[in-house]
Computed example of a mutant assay.
Amino acid sequence: MTRLLLASGSPSRLRLLREAGITPLTAVPAVDEEALEAAHPQATVRELVTLLARAKAHAVLPRVPALLADEDTAAEVVVVACDSVLELEGSPVGKPHTAERTRALWQRMAGSSPVLWSAHWVGVLTRDTADCGDATGPGDSARPAEADGPDRAAAGWRLRDSREAAGQTRVHLASPTERELEDYIATGEPFEVAGALTIDGLGGAFVRGIEGDHHNVIGLSLPLLRDLLADLGVPWTSLWNRPPA
């Protein structure tokens, strides 16, 4: 039996997987995103979003045994970690958090066509008869697990292999009126989403069109995830219809 563990607290990512026939376990990673960004001032947006997804994965890996306390039959665990960042005029734009920052951001990007990046880190953990230590250093883009240093993930588990990749989707935005923008800000919806925009919520009316995978804008590209899983030897359909976590 293979279980999928989503290393994310995003309701949108969880809903995407459930609607695709997969009911994952979930764990919210503790990662200081602003500190990580500050530590890599020269990183491109693609590099930054990949670093963030990788950090989230490694924050969750040591917790696998506890998360699977009632899942003794699971022989493998697929860990999926994602992060999304908007690229606007060549610079990264994450979650605005406040009304003031949301307002200033939308005033900059209204009517423009920024790129939304969503990075995916996917690793396969298998049970290990030896007592293993905690997760160690980060991996590298689209490379096997040896890039992650020692292949130990957590006590009783071994990181068999991993992959990472980032998808991009260009988003063509409308120009909300002043009232529309203030009403949108009042809902609080844009505060905790990358680039202060969504296509699966109240902000969808402000998106005129996209170029690329729409799942990617929501935060998890199902086609890209399927490809990464296939490269790791995990059939997409083998994860369908899992019992509720």
Rank of each mutant, 00 (worst) to 15 (best):
R143Y: 05
V49A: 11
F206R: 11
R170P: 08
G9W: 02
L67A: 14
A196P: 04
T169L: 04
V79K: 03
A30I: 02
P24M: 02
V45T: 14
P138C: 12
E182R: 07
E192G: 09
T187C: 02
N241I: 07
G123V: 03
T177K: 01
T23L: 13
L225Q: 15
T126Y: 05
G94Y: 05
D134R: 14
L67N: 12
M109H: 04
V93C: 15
R127L: 02
V49Y: 07
L25T: 12
D131S: 14
P114S: 05
V78H: 07
S91T: 13
Q107M: 03
P62K: 10
V80F: 10
V207M: 13
E19W: 06
H58N: 15
G201N: 08
L224A: 10
H214P: 02
P11Q: 04
T198N: 09
D131N: 11
A69Y: 01
V234P: 00
L222M: 06
L220R: 07
S141C: 12
D70P: 01
D231G: 06
A57F: 01
V77C: 14
D231C: 05
H97F: 12
V79A: 02
F206D: 11
V193P: 11
G94R: 10
E47P: 05
H58E: 15
L51K: 06
L173Q: 07
E164C: 14
E34S: 10
S113T: 11
T126K: 15
A20W: 05
